[in-house]
């Protein structure tokens, strides 16, 4: 569900950055108020755990599609909504920089779609109310599946809205939504099951480490704090290593949705494309003799312009090589 920079317009990206920054500001304030130095290494380990799981795609039987863990729900159940949200921001930033998974400009969108819903909605509206009177195995499974399904649905819906508002696709809203939501329902179920398995294990080992559960109801732990951290790392190892052997080569949910629609849609074009293209024709003519034949129609670009642009790029590429050559020469001379 990671969005690339090409899918968002600057206005949409900016708006989502502002919203995500607001949520991050509140989270930082809350974490500072807690003043728990032990939390920082746990956030680091949990972040690495989510990072490992997000590298994997899980095949969804019967659909030909696959998805990967969002991780927001798991982080919020372990760390609480605020620390979980900050950890997810770290994960998304590192993923974007190191592995080009998600864009730098689209980071605000990705934080909102994956971290905000998973951590705040998942923790405060689903996990906490269910765990109000203490945690049981069944409750954890219910909260995990419900939380993952609902937050992933919200995230998928946001991806649809952000892409359409950015104007990069001509896909109608209804068709886009109708293909995005069902596939992410299946992904949510898979994520919910994996999240439930990890959280049930943590509950049995060190229930006091789960967030939002009454302390009086919590069972005595069988492992030390260090042991629980180790347990979390085991879960990371399972998700990051063992399951990766079965990582799917199928496209993820968003890609699958689009593939399905592109193969069946036959809708006619509509909107202001004609007028926009006509505007471009007037300003694009470096070599007008080589322009497109039908000057009466709305010409979006011209052959001459492209040739001119390629010449400019060619000159700059040559200059870059020359720059490198002379720089090396200077260096060897000194």
């Amino acid at each position: 569900m990671h969005m690339a920079d090409a899918l968002v317009a600057p206005a949409v990206a900016g708006t989502m950055y502002v919203l995500s920054t607001g949520a991050a500001g509140v989270s930082v304030k809350k974490v500072r108020e807690e003043n728990d130095p032990k939390k920082i290494p746990v956030m680091g380990v949990m972040g690495a755990f989510v990072f490992a799981t997000q590298m994997l795609n899980f095949t969804i039987p019967g659909t030909g599609s696959s998805g990967h863990l969002c991780g927001g729900m798991m982080l919020s159940a372990m760390l609480g909504p605020c620390a979980g949200f900050l950890t997810m921001i770290g994960v998304l930033l590192v993923q974007c920089l190191l592995f080009a998974d998600g864009g730098l400009l689209a980071l605000g969108c990705n934080i909102w779609n994956m971290a905000f819903y998973g951590c705040f909605v998942g923790a405060l509206l689903i996990w906490k109310p269910i765990m109000k009177k203490g945690a049981t195995r069944a409750k954890i499974i219910l909260a995990s599946i419900l939380g993952c399904v609902l937050t992933l649905q919200m995230g998928a819906f946001s991806v649809t809205l952000e892409t359409l508002l950015s104007g990069v696709t001509e896909l109608p809203f209804s068709v886009f939504v109708a293909t995005m939501q069902p596939i992410h329902l299946a992904i949510g179920l898979v994520e919910g099951l994996i999240t439930a398995a990890v959280l049930v294990f943590v509950h049995e080992a060190r229930p006091e480490l789960l967030w939002g559960i009454g302390e009086g109801k919590a069972k005595e732990g069988k492992l030390s704090f260090k042991g629980t951290i180790v347990a979390l790392a085991v879960a990371a190892a399972i998700c990051g290593g063992a399951i990766s052997l079965f990582a799917s080569s199928f496209p993820d949910g968003l890609e699958w949705s689009m593939e399905q629609v592109a193969g069946t849609s036959e809708l006619e074009a509509e909107g202001g494309a004609y007028e926009t293209a006509a505007g471009i024709q007037e300003t694009t003519s470096l070599l007008p003799d080589y322009a497109f034949k039908d000057s009466e129609s709305a010409v979006g670009t011209s052959f001459s312009g492209i040739v001119g642009a390629l010449v400019v790029v060619g000159v700059c590429v040559g200059a870059s090589y020359a720059f490198r050559f002379f720089r090396k020469k200077d260096k060897s001379a000194t």
Binding site: H2, L7, L254, T301
Partner: peptide, 27 residues
């Protein structure tokens, strides 16, 4: 490094010829 975003961008872009069929020129 484009392997992660390339399929997604391709699929988003690939819709456009299906829906925006206005002919804007000839090569």
């Amino acid at each position: 490094r484009m392997r992660l975003i390339l399929p997604l961008v391709l699929f988003v872009g690939i819709f456009n010829p299906f829906f925006d069929k206005q002919i804007v020129g000839m090569i």
